[in-house]
């Protein structure tokens, strides 16, 4: 399966030096499908690989660098718009990785700008962003109301001139999910970058990635999230990291998701953490994460559908899910 090939080459880039042309084509297609082509290209830089592959990787590195510049510019635009409010603004995910100069940001594809602000500032943040040129993406009143009442973020906004989305979070999981992360602690312990923006603490960065991957969503694009976790853990690694991580995860109600993330990262990318022996259900998660064929298509439709259902069950209690699906069904 080509998803496994992507993981193997990311873990041990030397494996790319002995691939057949068919394997190269499968590797590139699957890495693109998982949005890992830029990370792959950074890992393969300087290795002796066929010229045609080297050109594709060079393109991907240039593309990722342009993406990094654009992501940092977008963060700066948001900073300028929000500065008069004087509220803390914490960058999340890809933009945070590149802003902090972390390994996890090298070659990473970055889509939307994700920021975290205190919940009590949400209304003010929203008003300021709307005044600065951001507009609603979802004009549907039900979707809008749903986001505002039940989600951990504002409905997505897009900037009318730069065509870039911003997701404004007030915590890292929907309030309807069972775990309740300590959003105030996330912001209180954030690390300032010196330009008015900050990023989550090392531990919270890993826990957020784990929460995003295993406590929310259907694992779509999850291999990239797991790669983030591997890179973060390797970079932050010192004697006490895992203990601090699990203690902090306890505070956020996210011990199972964090432990799952470390087990899966160890299983798929060989992340160096002591303990974290596999449990039976990990195999199913790995199957979902690595389910790309030689054309980059998703295999195992049954597994995919199972995780889709799981994502909704995680996100809301059954009665609420039934009401939500009924409303959505009537609208389509």
């Amino acid at each position: 399966m080509s998803g496994a090939l992507v993981a193997a080459v990311l873990t041990d880039p030397a494996r790319a030096t002995v691939l057949t042309s068919d394997a190269w084509n499968a590797l590139i297609a699957a890495a693109r499908a998982e949005q890992l082509i830029g990370s792959m290209a950074v890992r393969l830089d300087g290795l002796p690989i066929p010229p045609a592959a080297a050109r594709i990787m060079a393109d991907a590195r240039v593309s990722a660098e342009q993406g990094r510049v654009a992501a940092l510019w977008e963060a700066e635009m948001a900073r300028r718009a929000l500065a008069p409010l004087g509220v803390p603004v914490v960058l999340l995910k890809g933009t945070a990785f590149v802003a902090a100069g972390l390994d996890a940001g090298r070659g990473r594809s970055i889509g939307d700008l994700d920021i975290l602000v205190p919940r009590e500032s949400l209304d003010a943040v929203e008003a300021v962003l709307l005044a600065a040129g951001w507009e609603w993406v979802k004009p549907d009143p039900y979707d809008d109301a749903y986001y505002r009442r039940w989600m951990h973020e504002l409905p997505p906004l897009i900037h009318r001139e730069r065509d870039r989305m911003i997701d404004v979070h007030h915590t890292i999981l929907p309030p309807t999910a069972r775990p309740t992360p300590d959003a105030a602690a996330l912001i209180a312990d954030a690390v300032p970058l010196g330009n008015g923006l900050s990023v989550l603490s090392s531990e919270d960065m890993v826990i957020h990635a784990a929460a995003h991957l295993f406590a929310d969503g259907d694992l779509q694009g999850g291999l990239r999230n797991l790669w983030d976790i591997d890179r973060l853990v390797r970079e932050f690694d010192d004697a006490g990291l895992v203990e601090r991580l699990m203690a902090r995860a306890g505070r956020h109600d996210l011990v199972p998701a964090t432990a799952r993330a470390l087990r899966l990262a160890k299983r798929v990318f060989g992340t160096p953490v002591d303990g974290f022996a596999p449990v039976a259900s990990d195999a199913l998660f790995a199957r979902r994460l690595l389910a790309r064929d030689g054309w980059g298509r998703l295999r195992h439709k049954g597994t995919e559908f199972g995780f889709y259902v799981r994502s909704h069950l995680l996100r809301m209690p059954p009665a609420m899910l039934a009401r939500h699906l009924w409303t959505k069904f009537r609208k389509t």
């Binding site: 068919d22 084509n25 045609a52 592959a53």
Partner: peptide, 11 residues
């Protein structure tokens, strides 16, 4: 394609 490695896949 050179080296048998393609720039793009179409399906």
């Amino acid at each position: 394609p050179e080296d048998g490695i393609v720039d793009f896949n179409v399906r």
